[in-house]
Design a protein around this nucleic acid. Structure first.
Length: 581
RNA sequence: UGGGGCGUCGCCAAGUCGGUAAGGCACGGGAUUUUGAUUCCCGCAUUCCUAGGUUCGAGUCCUAGCGCCCCAGCCA
């Protein structure tokens, strides 16, 4: 778990429609004043930024209203899910800054689901169906035509009970039978056309091993899980809106609140939780432009080697964002800024970058690094001059303290901070011109040494009176540039990341294109940089502002043990570059 | 052509008893600045998908359209 502080400044209380609903429920005395939510990922992939929205919402609402939020793995389909993802998901939720009340699995409730199914059968509300998957499809009808009843729909309760028990006992082959709810094959809502409740899958489950060979379907398992966990508000995305009648139907038939026999298996195991009658509320998932978020495409990026893995800093996964150097507070701020509504919306990537800058501006210590070096020699200082200059670690926050930065007459400066033939509006170093070296004083470029066409060295004189504390320390010059002492500099590998996709909507497949055709050409560049010594032994995952360049993070995996490796999270806003366009 | 949703500024998003369009981001302009960063000012929807209607008054109510998203897994 990370040492990240939870939210920084207390944001205003959210007032979106879900918060309003919860407030109203609280005021009406529903659930005895309790608020309980849950984040229910299926452990079949890594969490991405979109999941972040759901995490922030669910944990955020619990936090806001003095309630609790559980982490529940929705592990009802053993053929798709892997234990490997479970640990990654837990780490991501923690990293984002949240703590669950209980860690649970839908599979914790398998015995309850089973009891509930028998109850449904006894109620005459469920039946064992022998139709094949194809036949079920034929009977279902279409969007505009009603479906037809299964020929097995009118089996007796006794026969259904017998068959269902034998399904559980493993007497039948995979896919040969299902347990189905008996609702209405003519419903305009296709979800209500006798949906499957249980299917036969003779596959070992990551938690229950081979204890079961029948597994419950999502619609059935989810609402019961919510109820037995005492969830009060079950928040999910818009596509489940027309599943809500089914969610309510199961719960109303089962009446888990009064029928305590159904939850006895939990109490027997010491899993004591208040049973509730939860309410499902849907909100729009969060989309980000310039990125793909579908699990399928994310997997493809990884398996096709387009990126270096799930936590490649260009990936929209939470682990990718982490490795990129995005602070968790920035991701929380981002989703808070987007808000919660029912409008399907795609937020601009620049909003995310803005949040990262905002959080990092306040929290990242400043440092010097030169990514594209050119030598600058100060000729009026003894060659052996060696001095330690004191710099504040943060321009606006003294609590960050100061640090010593070694200074000598041979420096590295950024190649783009010098222009032999300056364009108008260029405020940096030019032949014969002056510029301030941050914290050093004003230098004048007296000579340009070239190697062929390429500038190899700038020879400058330092105005000693302009040094800090000197009589001309306040003399104004147009520009200030950063530097690193060549003698003391530490070599670093710096990875410059940019957006993975070149177009705002990589999912747009008009003209037969795929997201692969929209990949940006230069989303990753590696440069050899010179950085100030203090950056050499920083802890992995420490974030800094390299002055005038951007925010960088010491790579989680590759930095340390002799290697100095930084990833660029985001550049600084650059109004000069923007104006030049 | 069935059902469920959604349409307010470039991008998000408030607007909840109908009372005369919040806020954020982006953008434009200016100030401060030893980061062309940050910060700070100022500007930025006579108009709410369209067309009718009700009303003294409509983003909010009514009617008719239009557009977009989701649903026909023994996936979640």
């Amino acid at each position: 778990m990370s040492a990240e502080a939870p939210a920084s400044p207390a944001p205003a209380a959210p007032n979106h429609f879900i918060a309003q609903q919860i407030r109203a429920d609280l005021a009406a005395g529903k659930h005895g004043g309790r608020v309980a939510t849950r984040f229910p990922p299926e452990p079949n992939g890594y969490l991405h930024l979109g999941h972040g929205k759901s995490i922030c919402l669910n944990f955020g609402m619990a936090q806001e209203f003095g309630g609790s939020c559980n982490l529940r793995f929705d592990d009802t389909n053993p053929v798709k899910e892997e234990l490997e993802y479970v640990e990654a998901i837990k780490a991501d939720v923690h990293w984002l800054g949240f703590e669950w009340k209980r860690l649970l699995h839908a599979s914790d409730y398998f015995e309850v689901f089973y009891l509930c199914a028998e109850k449904l059968i006894r109620l005459g509300r469920a039946f064992v169906c022998d139709l094949t998957a194809d036949e079920v499809r034929e009977h279902r009808g279409t969007l505009t035509e009603p479906g037809r009843n299964s020929p097995y729909r009118e089996r007796s309760v006794e026969e259904n009970l017998d068959l269902f028990r034998r399904m559980r006992a493993g007497e039948f082959a995979d896919g040969s039978r299902t347990l189905r709810a008996k609702i209405d094959m003519t419903s305009p809502n296709i979800n209500l056309r006798d949906p499957a409740i249980y299917r036969i899958r003779k596959v070992p489950h990551q938690n229950t091993g081979d204890a079961w060979c029948i597994y419950p379907m999502y619609d059935y398992a989810h609402c019961i899980s919510d109820a037995v966990e005492g969830i009060t508000h079950s928040l999910c995305t818009l596509e489940f809106e027309d599943h809500r009648p089914l969610y309510d139907w199961f719960l109303d038939q089962l009446d888990l609140v009064s029928d305590t026999s159904l939850t006895q298996p939990l109490r027997d195991r010491g899993l004591e939780m208040p049973v509730s009658r939860p309410q499902q509320i849907e909100f729009a998932r969060g989309n980000l432009d310039y990125t793909v978020m579908s699990k399928r495409k994310l997997i493809a990026l990884v398996t096709e080697g387009i990126v270096a893995g799930w936590d490649d800093p260009r990936m929209p996964t939470l682990s990718g964002a982490r490795r990129r150097g995005f602070p968790p507070a920035a991701i929380r701020l981002f989703w808070e800024r987007m808000g919660i509504s029912k409008q399907i919306a795609t937020i601009e990537y620049s909003v995310l970058e803005g949040c990262v800058r905002e959080v990092l501006d306040a929290s990242a210590p400043r440092r010097f690094g030169v990514l594209d070096p050119i030598k600058l020699v100060i000729t009026n200082l003894p060659a052996g001059h060696d001095e330690a200059l004191s710099f504040p670690n943060h321009p606006k926050d003294e609590s960050f303290g100061t640090r010593q930065v070694p200074f000598s007459p041979e420096l590295w400066i950024e190649r783009e901070d010098f222009m032999e033939m300056p364009v108008k509006g260029f405020h940096r170093l030019v032949p014969g011109g002056e510029v301030r070296l941050r914290g050093v004083g004003i230098v004048r470029c007296v000579d340009v040494v070239k190697d062929g066409d390429a500038v190899s060295e700038l020879r400058c004189t330092l105005d000693l009176d302009s040094r800090p504390g000197g009589p001309a320390a306040d003399r104004k010059v147009k520009g200030t540039i950063h530097w690193v002492s060549a003698r003391h500099a530490v070599a670093a590998e710096v990875r410059l990341y940019d957006r993975l996709f070149a177009v705002a909507d990589p999912d747009d497949d008009t003209g037969g294109k795929t997201y692969r055709d929209h990949l940006a050409a230069d989303s990753k560049r590696i440069v050899s940089a010179w950085v100030e010594p203090s950056l050499g032994d920083a802890e992995p995952e420490s974030r800094f502002q390299f002055e005038r360049l951007g925010y960088f993070v010491a790579d989680r995996h590759d930095h340390g043990g002799g290697r100095v490796v930084y990833n660029r999270a985001v550049t600084l806003r650059d109004s000069y570059a923007k104006a030049a366009k």
